[in-house]
């Protein structure tokens, strides 16, 4: 283990051996994220703008993550189907970022083009108490931005937003990331659907 880390991070290969999990200090991340929010707050007038800034920041991360994590997969392959890509976000991107898969991935009941990824304890929001006057602001906007970055870069443009959802039986509201795909994506999906004959 020690020998592996004697090399500078930029000198190490992008490829990782199996079982080698990259970890960073959660405290360091929490402070950095806290500073990002505090800095963003000096640049915005409303909570909507603040969420927007976090989403933009996340978008950049998402685009890079798609590239890196696809490369590290066993059989790197471009995802051409919507479900493949969503599963990739749920079971590959989430463990890379948070050390576990997302709690759930589901399709919205009301609409075909809406999907949701939910997490009860999103690690991003662990230490953050949103003051009451900030209304529905959710620091998970960064995660929404990351997801949007991945979807956009993969050619599945979507509108992505974060919401707090109260779940009966839980003391904390869960964070739900809602993805609404553009009509062009859904039309392409319909075309790619193998015809039942």
């Amino acid at each position: 283990m020690a020998a592996r880390h004697t090399r500078n991070i930029v000198d190490r290969p992008i490829w990782k051996s199996k079982g080698e999990a990259s970890t960073v200090s959660f405290s360091a991340f929490a402070f950095l994220f806290s500073e990002l929010i505090q800095y963003s707050q000096t640049k915005v007038k409303s909570t909507a703008e603040l969420e927007n800034r976090l989403e933009v920041a996340g978008g950049e991360i998402g685009r890079r993550l798609l590239e890196l994590l696809t490369y590290r997969e066993k059989a790197p392959k471009r995802k051409t189907r919507l479900l493949d890509l969503l599963k990739f976000v749920h079971t590959t991107v989430w463990p890379y970022m948070f050390g576990k898969t997302a709690d759930s991935l589901e399709q919205a009941n009301a609409a075909d083009d809406e999907y949701m990824i939910s997490d009860v304890n999103l690690a991003l929001t662990k230490y953050i108490s949103v003051p009451r006057d900030m209304g529905s602001f959710n620091p998970g906007a960064l995660a929404a931005g990351i997801v949007k970055g991945i979807l956009d870069a993969a050619g599945f443009p979507a509108r992505v937003s974060t919401h707090y959802v109260d779940v009966p039986g839980l003391s904390k509201p869960q964070t739900t990331i809602l993805m609404k795909f553009e009509p062009s994506v859904m039309q392409r999906e319909a075309r790619l659907e193998p015809r039942a004959t």
Partner: peptide
């Protein structure tokens, strides 16, 4: 240190109003 100092909405030396810290 966890729930107050890592909260971006807390200003140091000011009164603590953090729901998670209270809880």
């Amino acid at each position: 240190t966890d729930y107050v100092l890592k909260n971006p909405f807390y200003e140091v030396e000011m009164p603590i109003r953090c729901e998670l810290f209270d809880a």
